[in-house]
Amino acid sequence: MNTKTQRRIFKPLVFVASLGPLAWIVWAIYSDSVFGTHILGVDPIMNINRELGDWALIFIVITLALRPAAELTKFREFTAYRRMMGLYAFFYAVTHVATYVMIDLEGIYSLSRAGSLFVDDIIKRKFITVGIIALILLIPLAITSTKGMVKRLGGRAWQRLHWLVYPISLLVVFHFYMMIRADFSRPIIYGAIIVALLAYRYWVKWQRDNKRKARASAAKTA
């Protein structure tokens, strides 16, 4: 099977699978409502918000891991899914905030009240400030994720802009860390994974630079 057919089959599959967490939440709400199950429990507002936030972070980590995965496994196809995974991270982050404003802050009953409460939150609550900064910084990345935008910006400028995903991901982890008061293990694990992925990228770059230098000096002496 050539790469093109592979992509034609797997891309839609990955696309649909990535909607899984959202579909699962919708299913759980339905099941709890209709079948009396307790999947999301008696406080679904909190559980849904946590769940969506978790998935935004998971998709960020997947996005960051794809290139190292491609290099380490020599399965280059992984890199073809970076844009999709990145956009899913953005999608889950937006859903995380939208459900917070619409349900937790009761935007469905009064959008203006929820809006002003949310502005209050952003100003007063540092973990929300950090979270919203991360989301805002993701917007230019999401907008410039198309092939056309890569061309328009030029490879180097585009890469420099999209390198921002590393500091953004650490902001997201910090947002997660700041809202916890006991048992910090999860944000610490996510943070460690992201730092490891970043270190790997620098290590690869350092090796490449060394090789280039060695080649250059070899050419000089020859």
């Binding site: 099941s31 409502s33 209709v34 307790h38 999301l40 429990g41 008696v42 406080d43 349900i103």
Partner: peptide, 10 residues
């Protein structure tokens, strides 16, 4: 928290 789940609680 009343004991309601799903839409009603949401």
């Amino acid at each position: 928290i009343t004991g309601e789940t799903g839409f009603k609680a949401l």
